[in-house]
Design a binder for these strands. Structure first.
Lengths: 133, 133
DNA sequence: TAAAAAATTTACGTAAAAGTAAAACCCGCC
DNA sequence: GGCGGGTTTTACTTTTACGTAAATTTTTTA
């Protein structure tokens, strides 16, 4: 049931092209412990799971999360089932991150609303000046 | 029709307390041209409009925008009505920013959905272990 | 197998966004 | 009229997230 497009391994430059970052950046994320590609000799081999982690990292970056915060998010996903205390803590951490994200969404919605206003005023003004879009 | 709570001026430390940043930070934003408090002698006096700008700046920071990007957003709001060419450009810039923000919202929604999954699995697991929340 | 292309390590450099520290200034108050 | 608190300027420092370059090794291709 494997997808036919699913590659075993990706090279570092394949990934730099896909994500639009440099090799330095990807190696930096490895140094920071966000990904752990296996090696064949000295050469890094990236599995699909590494690629998915990179996607997650890029998403985090777009949202303005620092490396440290992205590390936290990754830790949440990686958390093994564990025992009760751990689970409670995990649920709590999830809740905190969600709060952060909801604040961001609120900020976004406000900003978009304001931009919509600016746009509307501009279009009105242009109509007054007798201009078609 | 002025709100009674509307102060004429705020001091720099009042604002540092309100926004949870240092004086250095506020002065830095002034250096960067994001705000322009007036002076009485050498001392900065912040008007309500400066305070509103600071709110906008903080919101931008929460969203991970750089100072340069925040400057752009402020420029959009400040734009005077202007002539047709300017207006068209403004509408275009608004549209670009909105696209950015919509991408961020998409990222947020995806991340929240994933966190919800983690939470659900955790709660299920805890229920199996016979634990009440 | 030789040459070209890709990848690695090591190390110094840099831009952004402040932090921190020192020295001087102003201002109301006892 | 000195003193404490808040403010200002100047300037050096720090952290984060990579950029850049050199020298070397490994892999691929002709």
């Amino acid at each position: 049931m494997k997808s036919p497009e699913q590659k075993q391994f990706y090279s570092i430059t394949e990934l730099t092209r896909e994500f639009g970052v440099s090799t330095r950046t990807i190696r930096f994320y490895e140094d920071e412990g966000l990904i752990q590609p296996v090696r064949r000799g000295r050469t890094r081999l990236f599995k699909p799971s590494d690629r998915r982690l990179l996607m997650l990292i890029m998403r985090g970056k777009r949202l303005g999360f620092s490396i440290a915060e992205i590390r936290e998010i990754i830790a949440i996903y990686k958390e093994p089932p564990g025992e009760v205390g751990q689970l409670k803590l995990l649920v709590q951490r999830v809740s905190e991150k969600r709060d952060q994200l909801q604040q961001k969404r609120k900020d976004i919605d406000e900003t978009i609303a304001e931009l919509d206003q600016v746009e509307e005023q501009s279009l009105t003004r242009m109509a007054e000046l007798g201009v078609g879009t």
